[in-house]
Design a binder for these strands. Structure first.
Lengths: 134, 134
DNA sequence: CAGTATCCGTGTTGATACTG
DNA sequence: CAGTATCAACACGGATACTG
């Protein structure tokens, strides 16, 4: 599998440009567009690939297969997601959280809850801001 | 100021495509590349524009003026950041967190701390993953 | 079903130059 | 100093076709 430099870099092979703060990479994986949704869904229960894709779609937009695959692989590599591929035909692959992943997901859930809880304050702030300007 | 459609959308004017889950937008602002760094720096103390730019640079890469401006405006509009422009020459603008922003920043700090604390577990997971494959 | 491979449009980012 | 304006690069994400 040939990947672009950025795709490789994204996976953790930091280049000289961003040598500092390796933990920021984990943070970005966890807070990425699809990472957030995947972690939160898996906090409920384990999912099969297509099933997870549909579940995520309900809480945001639907991820392309490519993006979901990429997200899951990144999270698996970081040790947050467990991938269980059953050797059956047709293929069946179950995804679940590791203990580490559960911790991460709970942090994310905290942030998501905060966002929901404060949503109207934010909305009011936006209205005030927009009214004050154009 | 002419902004692209996506830049406008990013600011909260959801289009039909992503009508669901407006809170996800706040979440994305808060967890955005520069949003995370800005919130964490402002948790320490208030900063002037250029000062903040240098402070952020220490914890990641340096944000371009454009990106820092955009990030600050978005967070200000969401009611997380307070902007205090003094009418002096040369201009002096101080940025600080609102109460709402402080809450958000604390959530983000939680996630960042978790990332730091678990960094070596993640690193080991990656090594195991990479060794198992190519 | 669960992916992989490839191509391609465009949005996000960042350098640079400029203004009040 | 604190921005705004403009433009180019490139990474991201999606559509599609294919495989085991």
């Amino acid at each position: 599998m040939k990947v672009s430099e950025s795709e490789a870099r994204e996976r953790g092979e930091a280049t000289s440009r961003e040598a500092a703060c390796p933990y920021r990479l984990v943070l970005e994986h966890v807070t990425s567009r699809w990472g957030v949704l995947v972690l939160m869904e898996l906090l409920e229960r384990s999912y099969r690939f297509g099933e997870l894709r549909r579940a995520v779609a309900r809480h945001g937009r639907t991820a392309s297969e490519k993006m979901l695959t990429q997200t899951l692989q990144t999270l698996e590599r970081d040790g947050l997601v467990h991938r269980d591929a059953k050797p059956v035909i047709p293929p069946r692959v179950d995804y679940s959280l590791t203990d580490l992943g559960r911790e991460a997901a709970e942090q994310v859930r905290g942030l998501a809850r905060w966002s929901k809880d404060r949503m109207d304050q934010v909305t009011r702030a936006r209205e005030a801001y927009d009214e004050a300007r154009g």
